[in-house]
Design a protein around this nucleic acid. Structure first.
Length: 420
RNA sequence: GUGGAUGUAGCUCAGUUGGCAGAGCACCGGGUUGUGGCCCCGGUUGUCGUGGGUUCAAGUCCCAUCAUCCACCCCA
């Protein structure tokens, strides 16, 4: 029979990688709570329309990367390719803007994009998504970056770069696009096919092209950054001031662009060159017109996403288990009758105990205990039952001692024994 | 969607000009009638990714196909 495997780009996450992701989640939850964020869980499947309206119908994500299908009632639905759209939908649907002045929300879960997998990129991947609705001041932009840096510091990831930029607002962008198109028109022959298309649809994307000809042409082109309108320029300047007050290290990358249409003003990316070609592991920015564009009240927004699989690749920290591992080794029929009572006594004290489910030789049980990294092995056989004792073997010290065969006092005695 | 590399035991991989499918690790048992890691001995594990073709004979050569990885595109 043919074995059934996961779909391309879908994977099981287990072992060390899963531990690292849990570690990242735990630390992140702690800081998010500290900064006043509440966790929210939103659906993985939404109406396709939601993503088209928020992300933009000419973006690659919407055009060719969504898992879209019609459900049994004939409606077009899509697995979420990112979380911000759903977060905004929930914010509006749940009427949070009527309940609180500022909403600080985060969600943790899978996203889906139908792309070709490669290092650090999968069709199903996991993000922590953080959003702030209702704050227009760049202080929040800086606060978010500060929080990210604290989380990274806590998980001991330091080999990264933080890049920032401003992509302006629709007003300064429209004026600039004309200027940019005028510039590139003079070089149409030198641009690659993709960039010729981009010229019509979204000339800002030409900056992203890695084609050497295109980069040399765009290197000399005017930059949106230098053509920001006064409010956008001022927003950015204040953002810089706050970043410095938080003592954050960053570089301004005037060519940094985002793949989603809704971004305005601040955009940022945390990158690491340990990650291969997909080097951004945290990215986000401001979206001041998105909520209004989705049918809500004019509300500014700012947020970011952490790519869990990518960040996990950067986590080097080893996890040392602090809770001891106990193992119960029994020899003979009578000893086996003690198994369940011993289990009960240990679980009552919150102690972790494992054992062999099959009646094996003591040697085999000891080997098994060792493979489970047991710290202490309780040994019970006919001899011990006769003497009314347990043997407690310290696997690290290679020493063992005797303890009374009394299940009520046993866990406590062992705990005392360990701490001696 | 495009390009390159790779598919042999649970894992990492070797396999010569086509000639009986291998090693290490892991796992199980024993060496010690009841004591782990190191050591020694023994044992289990395979549609050689799949389907065709060439050949007396294919893991090896040819074609197709699927999957994985890396890169492009794009992105967390």
């Amino acid at each position: 029979m043919e074995k059934i495997q996961t779909l391309r780009g879908f994977r099981d996450i287990l072992g060390d990688e899963r531990k690292k992701i849990s570690f990242i989640e735990n630390i992140s939850r702690r800081y998010l709570s500290l900064f006043g964020f509440s966790e929210i869980t939103i659906p993985v499947l939404e109406k396709t329309e939601l993503f088209i309206r928020s992300i933009g119908d000419t973006t690659d994500i919407v055009e060719k990367e969504m898992f879209t299908f019609t459900d049994r009632s004939g409606e077009s639905v899509s697995l979420r390719p990112e979380a911000t759209a759903g977060m905004v939908r929930a914010y509006l649907q749940e009427g949070l803007y009527t309940k609180e002045r500022v909403s600080k929300l985060f969600t943790i879960g899978p996203m889906f994009r139908h792309e070709r997998p490669q290092k650090g990129r999968f069709r199903e991947f996991h993000q922590i998504n953080v959003e702030v609705f209702g704050v227009g001041d760049p202080l929040i932009d800086a606060e978010l970056l500060w929080m990210v840096s604290l989380i990274l510091n806590e998980i001991e990831v330091s080999n990264y770069k933080c890049e920032i930029n401003s992509v302006g607002c629709p007003e300064c962008r429209e004026g600039f696009k004309k200027e940019l198109m005028a510039y590139f028109k003079g070089y149409t022959d030198g641009l690659c096919d993709d960039c010729v298309k981009r010229l019509q649809r979204n000339p800002l994307r030409i900056f992203d092209c890695k084609n050497t000809q295109c980069t040399s042409i765009s290197k000399e082109s005017p930059l949106l950054f230098d053509h920001l309108c006064m409010p956008c320029r001022e927003h950015f300047e204040r953002f810089l001031t706050y970043l410095k007050e938080f003592n954050l290290f960053f570089t301004i990358n005037k060519r940094l662009v985002r793949g989603l249409d809704y971004y305005t003003k601040t955009v940022f990316e945390f990158t690491s060159d340990e990650l291969g070609a997909q080097k951004a592991f945290v990215a986000g920015g401001r979206y001041d017109n998105l909520i209004e564009g989705m049918g809500g009240p004019a509300t500014p927004g700012c947020g970011f996403a952490i790519g869990m699989e990518r960040l996990a690749l950067l986590v080097k920290k080893e996890y040392t288990e602090t809770q001891p591992n106990f193992f119960f080794a029994y020899v003979g029929e009578e000893a086996r009758t003690y198994l369940i009572p011993v289990l009960k006594a240990f679980s009552k004290e919150g102690l972790r105990l494992r054992y062999s489910y099959e009646d094996k030789s003591l040697k085999s049980q000891m080997r098994y205990a060792d493979s489970l990294h047991a710290d202490y092995v309780l040994i019970l056989g006919d001899e011990e039952i006769g003497k009314k004792i347990f043997i407690v073997r310290d696997m690290k010290q290679k020493r063992q001692s005797e303890m009374p065969l009394d299940l009520i006092t046993l866990p406590q005695k062992i705990t005392e024994h360990i701490h001696r």
